[in-house]
C-alpha cells in the first residue's frame, strides 16, 4: 500500500510542529508516506446542507490527486481535514448522481473519481496497522511520570460513521499515551467542543470553554493536554492569554500534538518537535521530566 499524505493549510503554517513531529515519527517507524505533489485546501468544514454539492468539490479534488499519485489511501493529521475529506468521500460514494455531477464539473481533470480512496487518520494507522504493542516496543525514551490528558474535541469522533473510536468515550489518544509510557488522565470534557471557529468573532466563548476544559483536566492531575487538531490547539493554547484575562484564577497547561509526544518517545531530536510554536512553553515541563 502506497500512502499519500495530505497536510492541509495550517500544517504548513501555525502547526508546522504537528507536521514535522509526525513525519519524523513515521520515518522512525519505517512508514513511508509521500506528500501529494499538488493539493488544495479541503475547505476545513464539511458542508452540511443537503443540496450543497459545490463545496464537496475541494475535498474530492484532493482525493483525485491521491489517485493520480498511485494511492488508495490518503493519510491526514489534522482532525478537521480528516473529517471533511472522509465525509465528502462517504457522501459522494453513497450517491451516484452526485458523484456523476462532480465528475462532470471536474471535466478538466484527467482522472474521474470513483469514491475508492480511503481517508485515513494517523491515529488509525498507529493503532490498526502498527499496533500499540509493537509501538511500545519501539519506544526509546519512555514518557514515564508524565500525566497526559487527551483532548479529542469534535471532528475526530463525530459523527459516529466517520470516527474510528467510541463517540462518547474515545480512548485512542489515551491508549497511545500509555503505549509511550505516560500516565493517561481521564477527564469529563475530553469531547466537549472548544468553540472552534468562533475564535475569530467570539473570543469570550473560547475563553469560557478553555477555562472549563483545561480546569477539569488540571484538577485531575494533568500536566499537559494532547490534541490532534490545530484549531483546538490554538484555542486551548494561544487563547489562554484571553482566558486569564477573563478568569484571573485560571491556571494553564502546555498543549502538545500527540505526534510531538510520539516523536519524543521514539527518540527524535528536539528540533523535530517545533517547541517554539507554542504559547505556553512546554519546555520547562519536558525538562523537569528529563525528556529533553
Amino acid at each position: 500500500m502506497k500512502v499519500s499524505y495530505y497536510p492541509g493549510c495550517t500544517l504548513k503554517n501555525n502547526a508546522k510542529n504537528f507536521e514535522d513531529s509526525a513525519l519524523s515519527s513515521l520515518a522512525r517507524l519505517g512508514v513511508e508516506v509521500e506528500e501529494l505533489p499538488r493539493w488544495n485546501c479541503c475547505g476545513t468544514v464539511f458542508s452540511l446542507a443537503a443540496d450543497d454539492t459545490f463545496h464537496q468539490l475541494a475535498p474530492i479534488r484532493i482525493l483525485v490527486r491521491a489517485r493520480e499519485n498511485g494511492s488508495d489511501a490518503l493519510l491526514t493529521l489534522c482532525a478537521m481535514c480528516y473529517n471533511t475529506l472522509k465525509r465528502a468521500n462517504a457522501r459522494v460514494a453513497g450517491d451516484p448522481d452526485e458523484m456523476d455531477k462532480i465528475n462532470q464539473f471536474m471535466y478538466r481533470e484527467d482522472t474521474q473519481y470513483e469514491g475508492d480512496v480511503r481517508v485515513l487518520h494517523l491515529l488509525e494507522l498507529l493503532r490498526n496497522d502498527i499496533g500499540f504493542e509493537d509501538l511500545s516496543a519501539k519506544v526509546v525514551k519512555s514518557l514515564r511520570n508524565l500525566e497526559v490528558a487527551s483532548y479529542y474535541g469534535c471532528m475526530l469522533v463525530r459523527p459516529r460513521e466517520i470516527g474510528f473510536d467510541d463517540v462518547e468515550n474515545p480512548t485512542v489518544l489515551d491508549d497511545l499515551a500509555e503505549a509511550l509510557g505516560a500516565e493517561a488522565v481521564d477527564f469529563p470534557f475530553k469531547t466537549e467542543c472548544c468553540a472552534a471557529y468562533q475564535t475569530v468573532t467570539d473570543i469570550g466563548a473560547v475563553a469560557d470553554r478553555t477555562n472549563q476544559i483545561m480546569g477539569s483536566a488540571r484538577v485531575r492531575g494533568a500536566e499537559v493536554i494532547v490534541v490532534s487538531c490545530p484549531l483546538c490547539a490554538f484555542n486551548l493554547d494561544h487563547r489562554q492569554k484571553e482566558t486569564v484575562e477573563k478568569y484571573p484564577e485560571f491556571k494553564g497547561l502546555p498543549v502538545l500534538y500527540f505526534t510531538q509526544l510520539l516523536a519524543l518517545a521514539l527518540g527524535a531530536p528536539v528540533d523535530d518537535l517545533g517547541l517554539d510554536l507554542h504559547y505556553v512553553d512546554p519546555k520547562p515541563l519536558l525538562e523537569e521530566k528529563r525528556l529533553i
Binding site: 468562533q198 475564535t199 475569530v200 468573532t201 494561544h238
Partner: peptide
C-alpha cells in the same frame, strides 16, 4: 454574519488559517 472587511488586520493575523477559513465558510 461576518465579512473579511469587518475583521481588523490584527484579528486576521493572530488566528491560524484553519480558524479564518472555517469562520468564513460558516
Amino acid at each position: 454574519y461576518v465579512g473579511p472587511a469587518e475583521l481588523s488586520e490584527e484579528e486576521i493575523g493572530e488566528v491560524p488559517p484553519i480558524a479564518l477559513i472555517s469562520s468564513l465558510r460558516k
